[in-house]
Design a protein around this nucleic acid. Structure first.
Length: 191
DNA sequence: TCGCTGATCATCT
DNA sequence: GATGATCAGCGAA
């Protein structure tokens, strides 16, 4: 059950999320194991988390701290309610557009660092909640076909419950993952 | 590089 | 009425 979403999370590293002109190659993700996971929004079934109980490969977008949008990919069969939070990526096309949306001066490799920044670079907000990622006419996912990159696992970020499980995965030594998360203190085992 | 703080509101209790 | 799956800017070391 949980291993299922963990495997999916790892398969997302190196995959691309495409939104119009902007395309992002994912470098950092975090898994949430549905109703079994106290840190998941689906731990309790509410109107907000209902989308996660639906079919996989749809977007779950939520508003955070009254300021930011964050992007998840729903995983698992209907009723499973697992999801993977997209924490960081590298913009591989549409850099000008991504930079315009960010409105902050940062190096290219940092344009989509952090879940809220990733969403902003892709122009994702609440309007996109529930988007079917297999429909190539809109925001969609291009799953990695090549070999798996070198992956490091560590504890999840910014949560108060069940933060100890190493369900955050990132591409080893990738500059689009923030220095804090790459620091020796936060570093987990290479998977 | 590290640690703290303000911004700001949808969602849930 | 309280609480965040956050970010950027600031000052200190």
């Amino acid at each position: 059950m949980s291993g299922d979403v963990l495997g999916f999370a790892r398969s997302l590293l190196g995959s691309r999320l495409v939104s119009g002109a902007v395309s992002v190659e994912l470098t950092e993700v975090e898994a949430y194991a549905g109703p079994l996971d106290p840190a998941s929004h689906a731990f309790t079934r509410t109107p907000r988390s209902e989308i996660m109980f639906g079919p996989p490969l749809h977007l779950y977008v939520y508003f955070s701290y009254g300021v930011h949008w964050c992007t998840n990919v729903v995983w698992g069969d209907e009723g499973t309610a697992s999801a993977v939070l997209l924490r960081a990526g590298r913009v591989v096309s549409g850099i000008d557009e991504a930079r315009r949306r960010r409105g902050v001066e940062v190096p290219n490799e940092r344009l989509a660092t952090g879940p809220a920044n990733l969403a902003k670079a892709l122009g994702i907000d609440g309007e996109d909640n529930g988007t079917d990622l297999t429909d190539e006419k809109g925001i969609h996912l291009e799953l990695r076909t090549g070999p798996e990159p070198v992956i490091v696992a560590g504890p999840r970020v910014g949560i108060s419950r069940a933060a100890d499980v190493p369900w955050r995965f990132w591409v080893d030594a990738d500059p689009s993952v923030s220095a804090y998360k790459r620091s020796p203190r936060a570093q987990g085992p290479i998977v």
